[in-house]
Nucleic acid binder design. Structure first.
Length: 470
RNA sequence: CGGGAAGUAGCGCAGCUUGGUUAGCGCGCCUGGUUUGGGACCAGGAGGCCGCGGGUUCGAAUCCCGCCUUCCCGACCA
């Protein structure tokens, strides 16, 4: 019989389920300082795969990687009024170093617009230097009052892009391109996660931005998670840091800048968007291990068959395959691989083997196939592709089932208890935002009726998506 | 940062009200054996500054004070 669940069921206590998965799948631990996180090898493997998928997409848009310092002079933050106001509550500040009190405190970067702005000003001379397209992979620190592993930690890992352009239009185009071709493409194609794309209402904008675009995903408990953001910074930072260039007419002009980021929060989103009561469920495109071959018994014939199958699968096409030798009980090993979310399980046992068969099981649907050994590579290939599509599709069905179109704020509050509510932005407004906030809800994004990204919040006929969120 | 709950072996917990020699249980871990088609069983074993610091006391896991950490609910955020 199926064993009793190892994890707290989602329906019983979703936050507890999340913690159980993080612990039992060996993804992360709390660090010794409140809010810090130790990312364990399995969690880091997921992050590394996310990094390489995102990094490749970033480079395809023309940006180059660079690295800027962790320590930033405090004075930099005061150069942009909204920026300092937005970030000061979460700054970690170094006041002592080298055994002495510092004359100017040093901020541990919460984000790098300021330092990068300083150097953009230095590097940009002419319109020929533009656009300047930079990205960095780094850790940042934002002091968190209510930390949660991956979702909200005082130190987290991310990628932050920073660009400078000759015109608002060019900056806007590029930020939008990043949003669609990097973030949305990654989320839908690799993480198999449908998104709602839109812009943040002014109240939710990044501190110092003129426009913030977001990719909002829905978790299995119906709450929203902001998976990535792109900001148009207008000339706010260009003014603060003197990012000027000389145009074709020889006149000095101010740049327009952008910034955009995605963080280790994505790992939390992955867990909560696809996970079930058995643990993680990984989309094949992301999974560090796509196929686990399980020896049902620790038996020479079985072990040989497993090894042969492993060689075939990892050689023929480079599937990521692991062989699990037959030590330990079968049920236990199956459960462990399920918790880790490995997409396909190939079970090799003496009974099937006698008939030249093995059993292949899908992690997402638990569907089981009895298949001739020779047919395994083809079936595995098909199933991995099918699962990638199916996982996106079922996440989409789930999301749409929990998304309601409503015509009043009352109905929106009702619908957003455990899902998303789509309501006309004009029914919300500043007063409406204050009201839904008392229900622990926010406007996650504004989008056009057809789901596309508006240029600004003043466009007529916009839809507000209201939800509780992480 | 406010309101609530809790910190005892890697994890989950009992013991605390009513202070008293070697601090228990389940799971996990180690050794040996039997097992293995959905979290196996038997036997033996290792593992504790009882969150940290101070106080009360002949004596503190237990009573008192302070701090730290975790979880839940809010305000702030990737």
């Amino acid at each position: 019989m199926a064993g009793q669940s190892v994890l707290t069921p989602q329906s019983e206590d979703f936050p507890k389920w999340y913690q159980d998965v993080v612990a039992k799948a060996e993804m992360a631990d709390n660090g010794p300082v409140r809010g810090t996180m130790v990312i364990r090898p399995y969690g880091y493997a997921l992050w590394e795969r996310m990094q390489s998928a995102i990094d490749a997409r970033i480079k395809a848009t023309g940006a180059q990687n660079a690295y800027f310092p962790l320590f930033i002079p405090e004075s930099y933050f005061h150069k942009e009024a909204e920026h300092v106001e937005g970030f000061s509550p979460e700054l970690a500040v170094v006041t002592h170093a080298g055994g002495e009190e510092l004359t100017e405190p040093i901020v541990v970067r919460p984000t790098s617009e300021t330092v990068i702005g300083e150097f953009m000003a230095k590097w940009i001379q002419s319109y020929r230097d533009l656009p300047l397209l930079l990205n960095q992979w780094a850790n940042v620190v934002r002091w968190e009052l209510r930390p949660r592993l991956f979702l909200r930690s005082s130190e987290f890992l991310w990628q932050e892009g920073h660009t400078a352009h000759v015109s608002a239009q060019d900056a806007s185009n590029y930020a939008t391109r990043i949003h669609l071709e990097v973030y949305n493409d990654f989320l839908t194609q690799v993480l198999a996660l449908p998104t709602f794309l839109g812009i943040k209402p002014p109240s939710e904008r990044f501190a110092g931005a003129t426009n913030t675009m977001t990719c909002e995903g829905m978790m299995r408990d119906g709450k929203a998670l902001q998976m990535a953001t792109s900001h148009e910074l207008g000339q706010n930072f260009a003014k603060a840091f003197d990012i000027y260039y000389q145009n074709e007419e020889g006149q000095s002009a101010l740049c327009f800048t952008t910034s955009w980021g995605a963080s280790t929060r994505l790992v939390g989103g992955l867990i909560m968007a696809h996970g079930d009561d058995q643990g993680l469920v990984l989309p094949p495109a992301l999974a560090p291990t796509q196929v686990v071959i399980i020896a049902v018994r620790d038996d020479d014939q079985v072990t040989e068959a497993c090894a042969a199958l492993r060689t075939t699968l990892s050689a023929e096409r480079p599937y990521r395959v692991v062989a699990d030798s037959g030590r330990g009980s079968f049920g236990r090993r199956v459960t462990d691989w399920e918790i880790k979310g490995v997409p396909l399980r190939v079970e090799v046992g003496p009974r099937d083997l006698a008939q030249g068969l093995v059993s292949v099981v899908r992690r997402d649907t638990h569907e089981q196939f009895s298949v001739a050994i020779a047919d395994v590579p083809a079936l595995v290939g098909d199933l991995l592709e099918t699962m990638q599509r199916d996982m996106f599709q079922s996440a989409l069905v789930f999301r749409d089932a929990r998304t309601s179109d409503v015509t009043s704020l009352d109905a929106a509050i009702d619908a957003a208890q455990d899902g998303f509510a789509r309501v006309a932005w004009e029914h919300v407004g500043v007063d409406g935002e204050a009201r839904i906030r008392t229900q622990a809800m926010t406007v996650r994004c504004l989008q056009r009726r057809d789901g596309s990204i508006p240029h600004n919040d003043l466009e007529a006929g916009l839809i507000a998506i209201i939800a509780k969120s992480y």
